[in-house]
């Protein structure tokens, strides 16, 4: 295997890992995928180190110089569809069904796949906020305020994300919006149950990805990643809670509603 070929394979492996990590895959899964891709090509040494913000891979063979590739990961978001697609692709590649060139092309395709449109995301957030309220024992009268707040939440989220605002500020503002709107709504509709509306509305925001991945990384013996994702989940939860709390405090003192 010549050096060009090796570099190409390494490039493919790292790029596949990058897309997975940016889409919210667990660290151990990324490491596993990269190792599988490299092992299928018979390198003597193929070492992988992945943390949520960085990928480092080294390969070596007797007839080439050792090559190390370091990739800094930015712009993390949650795209579970991409994880699934890259997973399928890497399986096909490891089984030798496609060449490296084809695989690289397909990766570009995967990276630019469009998923659900913005209106779809907005309505999904609204609907899930509404039904989470019902799930936690809210009545029908609590359903509609949650629907409205969910809608607002998604609009603000998408707008902030398009402006590259840091995620903790987005979570804080989302919390603030929930707290502010629930109190405003209760001025006009005093019979709503503030607790169930707030609980239902914060559910679409809960750090499910960070939390679940933290556990799964810890199990996969990725201590650094597990810890950092755990802290991320905690920070997200605190940001949301702080936003809701401050807003409810301010707005209830304006309107004289007792909490």
């Amino acid at each position: 295997m010549n050096e060009f070929k090796s570099k190409q394979i390494l490039h493919f492996a790292v790029k596949a890992g990058e897309i997975m990590l940016q889409s919210g895959a667990e660290t151990y899964r990324v490491e596993d995928t990269i190792s599988r891709i490299l092992k299928s090509k018979d390198f003597n040494i193929a070492e992988t180190f992945v943390v949520p913000t960085c990928i480092i891979v080294t390969i070596d063979n007797p007839n080439i110089e050792p090559i190390t590739h370091l990739k800094r990961i930015k712009n993390r978001s949650t795209r579970l569809d991409k994880i699934s697609l890259v997973n399928d692709l890497s399986r096909k590649y490891v089984d030798g069904l496609i060449s490296t060139e084809e695989a690289l092309l397909e990766l570009d395709c995967i990276n630019s796949t469009k998923s659900y449109s913005a209106p779809m995301i907005i309505s999904a957030t609204a609907v899930s906020a509404g039904f989470f309220t019902l799930m936690f024992g809210g009545r029908l009268i609590d359903f509609f305020p949650s629907l409205l707040i969910g809608f607002l939440l998604a609009v603000v989220n998408i707008w902030f994300t398009s402006r590259d605002v840091i995620s903790y500020l987005i979570y804080f503002s989302s919390g603030f919006i929930i707290g502010a709107s629930v109190i405003c709504i209760s001025w006009f509709a005093p019979s709503i149950n503030i607790d169930s509306v707030v609980i239902g509305s914060i559910m679409p925001l809960v750090p499910g990805v960070a939390f679940t991945n933290s556990i799964r990384d810890m199990i996969g013996d990725e201590i650094i990643s597990g810890l950092s994702r755990g802290v991320e989940a905690l920070f997200i939860a605190v940001s949301i809670a702080a936003g809701v709390g401050i807003a409810m405090n301010i707005f209830s003192s304006i309107g004289g509603v007792s909490l």
Binding site: L80, D81, I121, A124, S128, P204
Partner: peptide
């Protein structure tokens, strides 16, 4: 399902 759509 709504939550799944948010996460694509």
């Amino acid at each position: 399902i709504g939550f799944s759509i948010i996460f694509h």
